[in-house]
Design a protein around this nucleic acid. Sequence first.
DNA 1: AACGCTAATGCAAATATTCGCATTAGCTAC
DNA 2: GTAGCTAATGCGAATATTTGCATTAGCGTT
Lengths: 161, 161
Amino acid sequence: MDKAKQGTKDQVAAINLMLSARGHRLTGTRTLILEVIAAAQAGLCAEEIYAQARDADSRVNLSTVYRNLEMLLHERLVSALDIGGGIRYRLLLPGKQQHYLVCNYCGRVREVDLMYLAPLREKLLIGYNFEPEFSGFTIHGRCDYCRSGGLPRQEDFEQEV
Amino acid sequence: MDKAKQGTKDQVAAINLMLSARGHRLTGTRTLILEVIAAAQAGLCAEEIYAQARDADSRVNLSTVYRNLEMLLHERLVSALDIGGGIRYRLLLPGKQQHYLVCNYCGRVREVDLMYLAPLREKLLIGYNFEPEFSGFTIHGRCDYCRSGGLPRQEDFEQEV
DNA sequence: AACGCTAATGCAAATATTCGCATTAGCTAC
DNA sequence: GTAGCTAATGCGAATATTTGCATTAGCGTT
């Protein structure tokens, strides 16, 4: 087994532990779905996850994929990001939190350092006793490029995130 | 004509001006859809907007409603908020920006004062030359009630926002 | 007022997502 | 290891949302 595959397996094992601790059952289909998401470099849409999982086990059903994605989102183990062209899901591992700046004009996406969000967290805690869960958090706006005279409102710009 | 209706008409006229200035055409269907959204107290889902617009003109089509909602979101004239039970749309007027704290555990929603977000805006501008557009912005997390021992993970809690 | 360009519409069909329900299979307790 | 409970699954059907395309109708120009 190559290294990448082993890394995927390890990640999935870790997630399964977490799911089990939170009262979810570890099923074959669920593990399969997790493996597909963990192995992917970029974010995958529901249909892609379904297609790849079905390659491994033809009985896998699309609605099960959707149900698992919903659960994994709720447990904050995957993130969902829509920058046009549908929602794409990716693994959200502890220690490697993901926060995005998404440009409304050209679609470019970049990550924000958590440090930018930390003070907001403190203030929301103090002001509202509200504890934000920033995993997979996205902020929309106008990016450097578009503010600096880049082509405005260029649609359908996509990039690997 | 009663006062509320006049207020709605005024809002729609203001929005139409803005749309026109941005190169959109002012059509009957579009104005109808705007009137429905402006008249509503709470947020409406696409289907509700469709139903009400169709009452006024039976030829209105659901896909036109979706296309207008997409455009209005893009122009930041309406906000979309999903707290379970589907996406609900509402008017987003200048001077009355809306930013929400949404609890992931009980579903409660409350508004955040823009003042909490202002420093983040400054820092994103300085650090990334990124200008956030916070209209209709939502932050998910765990609310006061749920942090203070409220029933955890109570689903399907809904309230007027 | 008529003309031309094309955004916007309505309609139908294609996709995407959710739901109800009978069945299966993890997990716990014995 | 087996029995029982019920979360999770697969399947089909119901909704929700998007898309392609021919037609209509704003709006600027003449």
